[in-house]
Computed example of a mutant assay.
Amino acid sequence: MIAYQTRYLLIALGLCMLSLAACQAPPVVTDLEAYDFEDPTAPTTMPPPASLYTLKSDSIKLMVTAGDGVGEVVNIDVTKVNDDADFPYRRALPGDRIEHVGYAADGSIIVGAVEDLSHNVITYFDPPMPLLPVNLKPDEPQSFKSKMKIVSRKNPQMVTDTGEASKTITHDADQTVVTPVGKFKAYRVHATYTAVLKTARVQTAEDAWYNPKLGLVAERDSETVTALILQWTNKKTIIRSQR
């Protein structure tokens, strides 16, 4: 009897282990040849922002395929907070940045603030800066301007810098993104961003690929920072590695 009980116990344990393995996320494919972009085509009409990139608690893994940190796996984590009615979501990005995001009255996805954890500051935008504006028509740029205020995360009353930011966003192409989990036709959104502060100047060029089923599929950015006589540039391309 003990032998039979032991046998059934081992079978049950094996089934539990198989069940746990099935629930785990598949490993990230590290072969960079599994990630690519097909040739872009003319842009077509985009769905509304909420249909392309639904704000909800989520975590996605992406492979760095070019630029700084090639071969690394990075996360973009979105969480919901209960104490911020205007920007109820936090989008944690590679590079120790956290965006405070939400929906505007017209349906645009907007950013009210960005936390820079490495420098322990928060940048506020007034008015909020769009991440994905509504009515973004093919090849018709939309431009935005905001005043910036940078404060200490430890002491929000301490203003460390001020300035102005400008951003131009264009749906400039449709493009298929090749990933280890399939090929996804996406809407490519190109954005240029300039921030002029008292102590520095920041210029960024960014492409983001959105698919109605997956949301963000890939992102490519190049950021140049000029402070006094110093200048440095960061570049990175990340492509989704899991569904």
Rank of each mutant, 00 (worst) to 15 (best):
L52G: 04
L228P: 08
C16M: 15
V101R: 04
M158N: 14
S166T: 14
L15W: 12
T224I: 03
I169C: 01
D36E: 02
K56L: 08
V78W: 03
M63E: 02
E164F: 03
A50F: 10
K213L: 07
P138Y: 10
G215E: 00
G102A: 08
Q242Y: 00
A22S: 14
N211G: 06
H171I: 13
D126G: 09
R91I: 15
T199V: 11
A21C: 13
V189D: 04
R90I: 13
P47V: 01
I122Y: 04
V121H: 08
L197H: 07
Q203S: 09
T176M: 02
I150Q: 10
E219T: 14
R201Y: 02
R188A: 04
G71Y: 10
E38V: 02
A85P: 06
P94M: 08
M129H: 08
A42N: 13
L228N: 13
K198A: 13
S108P: 00
Q231L: 05
S222D: 01
R240K: 13
D174N: 15
T179G: 05
E219A: 15
T30Y: 11
H171E: 12
P27Y: 04
I229E: 12
S166F: 04
I238C: 11
E72I: 10
M158C: 08
F184Q: 06
D106Y: 00
G182Y: 12
A205K: 00
D161E: 02
R90Y: 15
